[in-house]
Each structure stands twice: as C-alpha cells, then as structure tokens.
C-alpha cells in the first residue's frame, strides 16, 4: 500500500517522512524519525511513557494517529534540553526520581506542561498532572518532590 508523506515540526525542526496510513505517532517518532525519547510502554495510552506535546498539549503518542500531526508542532523530551539539561532532568537525577528511567521522559513532558500552565502548583496539582503516567519503581514521592523543587527554583529565578 502507498505510503503517506507526513510533515510536521519536531522540537522546532521540520521533519518529513513516509508513514503507513494508520501508523501511530509513537512508531513514526521512534521508527521513522529516530527520536527515541518517547518510550513504548503499553501501546494502549495507559502508562504515559510515550507522552509528547502537540501544539502545546500533552497527548499519548501511541494512541495518536500520526496523520493527525500533519503540519503541527510536536515536542518530545528531546526538545526540552538544549546545551544544558532541563532543570527537571537535573532534579530527577539529583532526587533519585528516576530509577529504571523508563517512565522518566513521559513524566518530564507532563511536568514541564504543568509548570508552563501553572508555575505555582501545589502537591495535588502535581499528582493530578502526572496521573496519566505510571512509575513502577519510585512510589512517585521523589518525582513529586523533584517537580515541586523545580517549581520553587523557577519561581525564585523569575522573582
């Protein structure tokens, strides 16, 4: 079957690939574009390991039809760090918020989306914001602490 030409922006750069008509976005990102930061966890939208943002809104890329991002802006974990790590990455490392690390890309995408819309989240806001994401190692507490720490640091930076 003919492949579909697909163009979108990934982390600020133009991307053009051919995909199968019903490919999901995760398989295109990992298999066709080579961005391995979103992970394949469940393939059912249930674990959050594949989370990316499309036009600034978080989605589960494994259940997003790749065609739906035609012409749109996609951001993955790879887009959050440039020369330096995102402060969330540093806080996750320092605070042992990543153990096996498989959930970490999705967690950080979710956390960054939260801090962009709400720079002053309380603990409940954080729990709610990462409620699409499963972590089977940490028990969540170090993750919540790391996000809270970065929120406080960034408010301090801005003040």
């Amino acid at each position: 079957m003919a492949q579909l030409p697909l163009q979108f922006r990934l982390n600020g750069s133009d991307v053009a690939v051919f995909a199968d008509e019903a490919d999901n976005l995760l398989s295109v990102l990992r298999g066709k574009v080579g961005d391995l930061t979103p992970k394949f966890g469940c393939g059912q939208g249930g674990c959050g390991a594949c989370m990316v943002s499309v036009d600034g809104k978080t989605v589960l890329s494994c259940v997003t039809l790749a065609q739906n991002v035609q012409g749109r802006d996609v951001e993955s974990l790879a887009g959050l760090s440039g020369e330096q790590l995102d402060p969330l990455q540093t806080a996750f490392m320092d605070g042992f918020a990543a153990q096996c690390g498989y959930c970490t890309p999705g967690m950080i995408v979710a956390a960054r989306a939260l801090l962009r819309r709400n720079p002053n989240p309380d603990r409940d806001d954080i729990v709610e914001a990462i409620s699409d994401n499963l972590c089977r190692c940490t028990g969540y507490e170090p993750i919540i602490d790391a996000i809270q720490l970065v929120a406080a640091q960034e408010r301090g930076t801005r003040a």
Binding site: A22, G43, Q44, G45, L60, C62, V63, T64, L65
Partner: peptide, 23 residues
C-alpha cells in the same frame, strides 16, 4: 475516529474487525 484513545488501541493490536478509520 474521535481522539483515538480507545480506537487506536484496537488498531495497534491489529483488530481484524477494523479495516478503515474515518477522520
């Protein structure tokens, strides 16, 4: 196809009952 949160699970799993998605 709506948002795909349920339907794309079936597509990913290769459900033979689905041959076409309508956007």
């Amino acid at each position: 196809l709506g948002g795909g949160t349920l339907l794309m699970q079936r597509v990913n799993a290769g459900d033979p009952g689905i041959r076409k998605l309508v956007r």
